[in-house]
Amino acid sequence: MKQAILILLVFAFGFSYPLQAAGQQIPAAGYSVSGRGYVLPKVSSLEHGAVDFIWNPSRGALTFRAGASVPAGDRWFADAVVAAGLDITLFRAEEHIFRKWISHESRYAPAFGGGVTCALSESPSWYLSADIQPLRFEVGGGVIALLSPSIYWDPTYEKPFTPTGWGIRLFDFGFFVW
C-alpha cells in the first residue's frame, strides 16, 4: 500500500517538472500556484489559494498570467477573485545570496507587474493592480516568488490614483510545462 502511494505521488510530482533534454523545445506555458491575502472592499481577508495560467512565449522578460483565487477557511470558495496581468523581469543574476538555500541551479530574477483584478462578489468590483516581486527566482523550469506585495486602485473612484487597498502573495510557484 505504502509503495502504491509513493508510486502515485512520484507520478503526480513528475508532471510538475518540464522536460528539458537537449534539443527539446523549452516550455513556454504553464501554471502557477500561490497563497495570497487581500485587504480590499468586498474581498475576504482570509488566505486565498490561487491558480494562474502563465505564458512566456520567448522565455524572456515578459510573462502573461491569468487565473483565479478562492478564500480558504470557513468560507471555502465563497468569494472568488479573478485576475490577469503582466510580469516584467527586471534582470537575471546567476550569483545571488540565496543560492545556498536552493538545491537546483537558480537565477535571481526580481520583477514587477500590473494588471486587472475582479472580485466576484454579488456585485463584481474591478481594480487595477501593481506589484513588485523582490524575492523571485528562476529555478530549473519554474519560477518561485516569495513575499510579493501589491496595491490596488478602483478606476471608478473619484480619486482614481488613491490606492483602494493592498495585498500580498506569500508564495508563488510557477511551472512551465507546455
Binding site: 497563497g35 495570497r36 491575502g37 481577508s45 482570509l46 488566505e47 486565498h48 480558504a72 477557511g73 470557513d74 516569495l146 500580498i168 506569500l170 508564495f171
Partner: peptide
C-alpha cells in the same frame, strides 16, 4: 520554516485573516 496559514472558524482569539 515558512508558509501561510489560515485559522478557522474566526473568533475573538483567532481573528479572521491571512497569517504567516
Amino acid at each position: 520554516t515558512g508558509g501561510p496559514v489560515t485559522y478557522f472558524p474566526a473568533g475573538k482569539h483567532v481573528p479572521e485573516g491571512l497569517y504567516a
